[in-house]
Each structure stands twice: as structure tokens, then as C-alpha cells.
Amino acid sequence: MLDQRRFEGMLAAERGAGELRVNLLRLLAIVAFYGNHLVDLLQRGLTDRATLHEGIAVAVVVALWGSLVAHVVVAMRLGRAGPSLPYRVVALDLLFASLLVTMLDGPASSLVMLYPVIVASTALRLSVPLVRFGTLGAVASYVIVVALRGLEGVVPRLRGIGSGDLPGTAAFVIVVLSITVVGLLAGQGVRQALRMAVRGLDAPSSSGGPSEAPNGPGAGDDDVTGSGNGDASTVEEAR
């Protein structure tokens, strides 16, 4: 019979490790994207005021994003990673990505590819609710960015808030569908992984994992997915 406590302990540890892995990959992505931006900026030269402001704005967002990475590690190390941590981190990821899309080339640019990347990153936390949250949040963020750009022509106060063109209807639908499909695939991946884990633990085992649910991030009150009781239902769901 499945030792539910043992399963929850192992799941919490894997979720914590997943959070740290996502944190590292997020940071490497920021370094790569920002490096590309700096090279592009130097090639174009800071000939006008708008380019200088763009460079400063991107640097501020990158510094904030870097601080988020440090915050996640420090919060987990000090045992202060509450159940809402991954949700807050995903929400901030979406906010920073939306700021970059708005400030740089607009919602018709290739920067909107950041949204599916963020949705894909939610899968590493092994939580279906988080994948749902990330997917819906990404779609909502993209719609808001497009709406802001569209309203700029109508509401004078919003003028100058962003740059770039509005995407066409077909392009808009394709981006929304892409984000949704990536979310569905990520969710299915998580469900299959959990089901396989439950199947593996159903089999007799001699070594075993932790016999107690950890008190670090990812379990009980500190559960990184914030699912708390949801972990028990995760076991049943995965079965």
C-alpha cells in the first residue's frame, strides 16, 4: 500500500529542487537575453534619447528580476518560503515579461515568446494548479499588453506608455493558442509524472524516502505549491 506520508515528503523535496532548478534556468535566460540586448544596444548606438531610456528601463527590469532570483534562494534557505512562493514568483515573471514586451518592441514582436517559456517553467514544480495558474496568467498578461497598446490610440493618458505595432487578429489568436497548448502539455506532463511516481511507490520498496514530511519549503505549511491538503488529493488524482 502506498505510504502517503512518504510520498508527500518526496514530492515536497522534488518540488523544492524544481523551484531551485527553475530559478537557475530563469537566471541563465535573463543573462542570455540581457547579453543579447546589450550587444544590440551597442550595435545601434545610443544616438537618441529614446534608446537611452530604453536601455535604462531594461536594466532596471533586469536588476529587479535578478533580485527575485536571489530572493527565492534566500527565502528557501531561511525557511521562509511560504505556500504562495511559486505563485508569487510566476506572477512576477509574467509582470516583468509584460513590462519588457510593453517597453521594447510591443505585443507584435518576438518577445511574446517569453510567455510560453514561463508557462513551460511551471511544470518543474510538479503542481497542476500552478501550471493552470501560469497558463491563465500568461494569456491574461498578453491580452492586457495588447489591450494597453490598442487603447493608446483612444485614451490620451495612455499615449507613450509602450511602443511597437498591434498584432493582427490571426497573430493574436496564434499566440493565445500557443500559450494554452504549452500549458496543456505541461499539465499533462506533470500528471503523468505524478501518476508514475505513485505507481512506483505502490510497489514494495526497501530503501524508502523520508519518513516524515519535511518542514522545509514544499511541505505542510511551507509547501512550495501551496496545495497543502492538495497533496493528499494529488495522490488520489494521480492514481
Binding site: A13, A17, L28, G216
Partner: peptide, 28 residues
């Protein structure tokens, strides 16, 4: 407390998790 609590386990799974966490922190 340690960043990931594995409760002193020393099986293949926990060693793998520990190694991953250690490497991730170093590269971060």
C-alpha cells in the same frame, strides 16, 4: 534548516536530489 529537507536519508534518490540542489545553488 537546510534548503531541502531530506531528513538524513542516504539512498540513491536523496543523493541525486542533494547533488542537483548543490549544483543549482553554486551555478545560481
Amino acid at each position: 534548516p537546510p534548503i531541502i529537507l531530506l531528513d538524513g536519508q542516504d539512498d540513491a534518490w536523496s543523493r541525486s536530489v542533494r547533488r542537483d540542489v548543490r549544483n543549482d545553488l553554486m551555478w545560481t
